[in-house]
Design a protein around this nucleic acid. Structure first.
Length: 510
RNA sequence: GCACCGGUGGCGAAGUGGCUAACGCGCUGGUCUGCAAAACCAGUAUUCGCGGGUUCAAUUCCCGCCCGGUGCUCCA
């Protein structure tokens, strides 16, 4: 029996195992309702363009959902968009526009960036501003139990003293903490310094909602609890986010949700580690802070960025470097070249004379099994891709030795397809997104941030390139190698690389 | 300061109480090519931050130290 679309027998597909922050162990991950895996992932706060650290998290969640789907597991994935928070209110107010006008642009940019990186969209995207009633209802549920309380200024807080398990996710012990130790001048009459805001009273002139709890805006934590429970129920399978969200955000979500429902909120917690950039923490003050668009304007390809951000397992602190980006560009290119070679070459038919074994087909099957096993083992993407690269080297060698036959083709292409169902780098959308980003930069008056060679690379049309290649072919036939090399060099200077092969000339934009 | 995570070749990294320490990139030499490119082959860590300890055996376990990161405060 085959499972999902992997072409592998059920026995070759181990159950996915994933580290669970809550229990501190690697545990099996299967839908608790036997149908679809219900997962919630903290989404972006749309006040600016996303940076590569943001995208590492979204990319790793994408790997998880792609892998589950590949195995045949349905996924019900909810992601929030935080389109109201202090920063948004401040920035929109400074720009003199309504917050919705301010956030719209960044929300759109966020989804464009996901598309550039081939990140699948969640089944459900939930905007905070469209779920105020659900948040109010949840706070009211807490208020009836006296777990939520109102302060003099009209804000509502969560009474942490009423949730003894507080700290169970981040493994913090709050017993010894002295409430009086911290004084927050910004807050009014909280019962305990640790108590966090559920609903914030408005400051004069601020954007506000008029509700049964009074005027104001939601706290950040209640947003995720309310929307997760709205779409996934009180209790669901998995909750994901960056490691920094573990405390206080996720801890607070647990406290609110479990206090209201008296049920386990999320069974499995998935946290993606921060990355380093050039061995340092990424920050604006370090000067190593990059948005996706920064990198595209510098000429790096979305596929290489995806490959780099995905290749280091999510629990490792990946060191993002430009050298690494260049390396992944080459690695992706090698895989594309390989697939192209397998797909387009006229392979010989196997005959009795050239042996009966099917080493290539066997290697491809082994690669598939190794790939799936590595991902099932806590999403070990490094090992998974190693399985594929081993196959590539082996198959290339057999092909060079004349030991690749037409009958091997399907299995090898199938292994590549399996790989790409998760890694999603083989189909070349790079040029399209680089062009898109250049157009955006032009509209935004940021064209000066684009590297000159990026523009040069896109200057020549495919037709112009083809014409030059044809001219070079004629020069070669006339054994005018000087002219032929001149054309090749000119194209190389514009980032167009030519490769001669038995089946004609291949070219690509570097 | 307290808590947690990590330190493996030139770079990014996988992994394990004991087989030749994956894989990608880079570099060197070779095959192929008019020359390149692509592809392949060979070489490229006697060694896994440092110092102790446990063990027949440690990169893998324990202790200490150094370094990096995260949380304790908005942060993917």
């Amino acid at each position: 029996m085959l499972s999902g679309e992997t072409g592998l027998a059920q026995g070759e597909l181990p159950t996915p195992r994933l580290y669970n922050t809550l229990t501190g162990r690697v545990e099996g991950l299967v839908p608790s309702d036997g149908k679809a895996l219900r997962m919630y992932a903290c989404g972006p706060t749309v006040y600016d363009y996303g940076h590569i650290g943001n995208f590492r998290t979204f990319l790793q969640v994408d790997v998880l959902r792609r892998f589950l789907r590949l195995r045949g597991t349905q996924v019900r994935h909810v992601m929030n968009v935080t389109d109201v928070d202090d920063k948004i209110i401040r920035n929109a107010s400074a720009a003199g526009i309504p917050i919705a006008d301010y956030t719209r642009k960044y929300e759109q940019a966020f989804f464009e960036d996901l598309d550039a990186l081939q990140v699948e969209h969640p089944e459900i995207v939930a905007r905070a501003t469209e779920h105020i009633p659900e948040m109010i209802a949840l706070i009211q549920r807490l208020a009836t139990q006296d777990i939520a309380y109102r302060t003099e200024d009209g804000s509502w807080y969560f009474r942490i003293a009423r949730f003894p398990e507080y700290g169970k996710l981040s493994k913090k012990d709050f017993e010894g903490i002295n409430d009086g130790a911290r004084i927050d001048l910004d807050e009014y009459e909280k019962d305990s310094a640790r108590d966090f805001a559920l609903w914030k009273a408005p400051r004069p002139g601020e954007h506000r909602w008029e509700t049964e709890l009074g005027p104001g805006r939601p706290g950040w934590h209640i947003e995720c609890s309310a929307m997760a429970m709205q779409y996934l129920g009180d209790s669901f399978d998995l909750h994901a986010g960056g490691e920094d969200l573990m405390f206080p955000h996720h801890e607070n979500e647990i406290a609110q949700s479990e206090s209201a429902s008296h049920r386990i909120f999320a069974r499995h917690w998935f946290h993606v580690r921060f990355l380093l950039v050039e061995n340092r923490k990424m920050s604006k003050s370090e000067g190593n802070f990059y948005t996706l668009r920064d990198l595209l304007l510098r000429g790096y390809k979305p596929s290489a960025i995806r490959m780099l951000l995905i290749s280091v397992p999510y629990r490792q602190q990946l060191n993002f470097t430009f050298e690494g980006l260049a390396a992944e560009t080459v690695a992706v290119e090698r895989l594309r070249t390989f697939r192209d070679r397998i797909a387009t070459t006229n392979w010989p038919e196997r005959s009795a004379a050239n042996g009966a074994g099917s080493e290539v087909t066997a290697a491809a099957r082994e690669a598939k099994a190794g790939f799936m096993a590595a991902l099932a083992d806590d999403l070990n993407t490094a090992e998974a891709r190693a399985a594929i690269f081993e196959m590539v080297r082996f198959v290339n060698a057999r092909a060079d030795a004349g030991q690749f036959f037409a009958s091997d083709k399907a299995e090898v292409l199938d292994a590549l397809d399996l790989f790409d169902r998760v890694f999603a780098v083989l189909d070349d959308h790079d040029e399209q997104w680089t062009r898109f980003t250049l157009e955006w930069a032009e509209r935004e008056g940021r064209l000066d941030q684009a590297a000159p060679e990026v523009r040069a690379r896109l200057e020549l049309s495919n037709e112009q390139i083809q014409a030059l290649i044809e001219e070079r072919n004629q020069a070669k036939r006339a054994r005018n190698f000087a002219r032929a090399d001149q054309i090749r060099n000119d194209l190389a200077a514009k980032g167009i690389a030519l490769e001669d092969s038995k089946d004609g000339v291949r070219w690509k934009r570097k």
